[in-house]
Amino acid sequence: MQPSYLKVFLTFARNSLIRDMSFRMNFVLQCLSSMSWAAMNWGLFKIIYRHTGEIGRGTGWHENEFFIFLGTVWIVNSLVQTFFMANAEEFSELIRTGNLDFALLKPIDTQFLISFPRVNWAQVSNGILGVLLIIYSMFKIYSQDPEAAEIGTAGVMSKKFSWIAIPAFLFFVGCGATVMYSVMICLASTSIWFGRNQNLYNFWFYITNFYRYPMEIYQRGGGIGMALWCTFTFVIPILVVSNIPARILAQPLGSPWKTWEWGLAAFAIVASLWSLLASRWVFRKALLSYRSASS
């Protein structure tokens, strides 16, 4: 009999919520701590924008546009940390202790079973913060009087908001989360070969560091920058994760999308499908090398 994946997932989510709620103070502290990291990040850019009007000349990433970008990063991050992070760490641990045996025995897809058992509800707080930041920044951008904007900071054009942007944004955030999930599963799978992957979190932090900024900063950075841009767009497609949805809402250039922007969006869809398949392949390949441990 085919198990109902949705029901299983909902049970996981419910169990995790019950667990989180039994340590309520801890839950609140976790929320606060992840939100204060976000606030610090926001503070850094608030300070940077005291000294400059834009990040990258002519890119259109002015303060409000950039905060939409930042909000998008927070949302994707919060999705990753809510649903995948703890599970990937647990997966490494299962391999080390040999408890993966039990997961392999269960009559359900193993990748599903190790990907979703724990939902870290506290990390949702960051996503909510991201949504609030985006709404606030959008409000500031679109409420700008077009004529005043024309006279004010150079390059600011009046932007028109279309409601299609919202479902498109959500769709591409979904694509982004898929890409991040795939990268994480690939990373976690490596612990089958290495025995233990203690640096998983570090490595994750170092990789995701690249998607926290608009990709223009690499494109204009000469040879190394272009190499980085190519690597993190086409090999490990994490740049499209944040850039596409943020561009949809922020419209940094103010004008209708250009061909390359459409192309990149189409690529993001392909990339998320492709990386999902790749992660599936890596996961299966890794499982073949699994030799259990302990008793």
Partner: peptide
């Protein structure tokens, strides 16, 4: 591990380049 520590600095280099680029004379 130590070499990896410098990766975030790499993004900082590009980020600040983009910032300084804006405030400089073209």
């Amino acid at each position: 591990g130590t070499l990896m520590r410098f990766l975030p600095t790499l993004t900082q280099i590009f980020l600040w380049w983009a910032i300084y680029d804006v405030i400089s004379t073209p």
